[in-house]
């Protein structure tokens, strides 16, 4: 990538983004603008995919809501994302957890990552 474009992108990057990895359980707070009112909506689920770099970095979060699988893609540097809380670190052996789409219930459990120092 062109160094000038990198410089330009830096001005649009957020200074604080928590380190999110696939397998983590996260709660994403999204700003929603309705008319001229602004409110914050939370979306909680498992990160199944990380994509892109720089300004274009996105995460895909999956949850099962009323028996229906819901996946949302979040552009994590967007000003519309208020904050991202990592609730639980997951220990997975894939970078993309597409296999969760074919599973339900107990089979979708992910082992918790235990930090070793």
């Amino acid at each position: 990538m062109n160094p000038t474009i990198d410089e330009l992108e830096k001005t649009y990057l957020k200074s604080e983004i928590p380190a999110v990895n696939t397998g983590d359980t996260v709660k994403v707070f999204v700003k929603i603008i309705e008319g001229n009112k602004e409110r914050i909506q939370a979306f909680e689920g498992t990160v199944i995919k990380k994509h892109g770099a720089g300004v274009n970095k996105t995460i895909t979060v999956r949850k099962v809501f009323q028996g229906v699988g819901v996946e949302r893609v979040f552009l994590i540097n967007s000003p519309r994302i208020d904050k991202i809380n990592v609730l639980r670190r997951g220990d997975v052996k894939r970078s993309k957890l597409y296999y969760l789409r074919e599973r339900s219930g107990k089979a979708t459990r992910i082992r918790e990552k235990i930090e070793t120092k």
Binding site: T4, L8, Y12, K31, V55, N56, S78, P79, R80
Partner: peptide, 21 residues
């Protein structure tokens, strides 16, 4: 033409842009 990227506008929407020096 340097290339393309995306930036955010005042409403927080991502806009695809071409950067020209």
């Amino acid at each position: 033409k340097l290339g393309m990227t995306q930036i955010f506008d005042e409403q927080g929407l991502a806009i695809p842009v071409t950067v020209v020096k």
